[in-house]
Design a binder for these strands. Structure first.
Lengths: 197, 197
DNA sequence: AATGCGTACGGAGGCAGCATCCGTTTTGAT
DNA sequence: ATCAAAACGGATGCTGCCTCCGTACGCATT
């Protein structure tokens, strides 16, 4: 429509078809078996050969990033709701929760995510989303610091790491109660003198 | 000496020899390549066949637990020094640091460790050490609570998880500065109203 | 020294997953 | 209907896991 971008030839139909089939199947497998699931199995169930899978997504990270793209949109949607909150402290809290759920979408996801977060070269397709999230977190932190609810020493990156940690622990199968206690501990860490214990 | 335990035959010499050779080689490989290192490579470098390795250590966890046994002794040694500290808060802090270093001895170690910690059946050889550590942590926590330095809501298990998290993050290659900021965040979380920010 | 027995060895082999390469098929354009 | 580009997909080679079993070793006995 806006930017007519069809130079030369019209793209083949099977390309898009295979791509979406792969993405759907991959998401199912990631959900059921974690990020280390067999890519061969994904290809087979999607009804394509291994070669096709690797042509579309050269690495496991590329496939993961593509699948995660869908989830990112949900996160952005939640972000809109969070931004409407009046209390910045509450906004930060909900944002951390949203990130945590995003991180623990698939078991084993935090590992490649952290690998991408520390990477310098942008060859890892997960790197950009990570930096976006850190920046976003920092915004919420700064807003909450202005109202005095959060210690000044806290940075967005710190809470990004914390959320990632909790997601990782969640992925190891820890019970929900221990998890919630850990969240509380972290909250006590970034909130300004909250004597709730 | 004390309990003369040599029923029937004297144990063969090569058994002990191979065992120690395997342990030494395994520790080197774990250090260099993390817990997911190739066991075949370990066996080859130790000068034994794969069969011998698996007879001595039926699973990767068993080998890991055996290698970790050496490190456990270092931890116990540090514990003696920590117990001599007058300030329980300081003791707790140092204990957490010691645990964290123990957990991050090999890259990737926190994962099997957490898997063992949540396991019910004691068929996992890492399970017992884990429960020991949680109990020990709880002791330090309670001592520090008596002097009022630590929030009453905190449990040993919470800080065990926290230490494990930090160790995991360390293993992902995060820089030392971010790591230290995270430690501070957690410390602010368990300490009683420490307004250091 | 020589023999015998039980234990431990170790490598061959079957399996699964990764990643690639290339002959073949599909698809859109003419 | 024909063509050429583009995409397909499976055969292939590789690495690592783990097991099984014929063989060799080491300790005890004579």
């Amino acid at each position: 429509m806006s930017a007519g971008e069809q130079r030369g030839r019209k793209p083949r139909a099977d390309v898009q078809r295979n791509r979406t089939a792969l993405l759907e199947t991959a998401q199912r497998h990631f959900l059921q078996h974690g990020v280390d699931t067999s890519l061969e199995a994904v290809a087979k169930e999607a009804g394509v050969g291994p070669g096709t899978l690797y042509r579309h997504f050269p690495t496991r990270e590329a496939l993961l990033a593509a699948v995660l793209h869908t989830r990112s949109e949900e996160l952005v949607a939640r972000q809109a709701g969070i931004d409407r909150l009046a209390d910045p402290a509450q906004a930060l809290e909900q944002w951390l929760r949203a990130m945590e759920e995003y991180f623990s979408a698939f078991s084993g996801l935090p590992d490649p995510l952290m690998a991408a977060a520390r990477a310098q070269e942008p060859d890892n397709p997960l790197t950009i989303p990570c930096h976006t999230l850190i920046t976003a977190t920092d915004q919420y932190v700064q807003a909450a610091q202005l109202t005095g609810h959060v210690r000044d020493s806290v940075r967005g990156n710190d809470l990004f790491l914390a959320a990632c940690s909790v997601a990782w622990i969640k992925g190891t199968g820890t019970d929900e109660e221990s998890l919630d206690r850990l969240r509380t501990l972290i909250a006590s860490g970034y909130r300004r003198q909250d004597t709730q214990a």
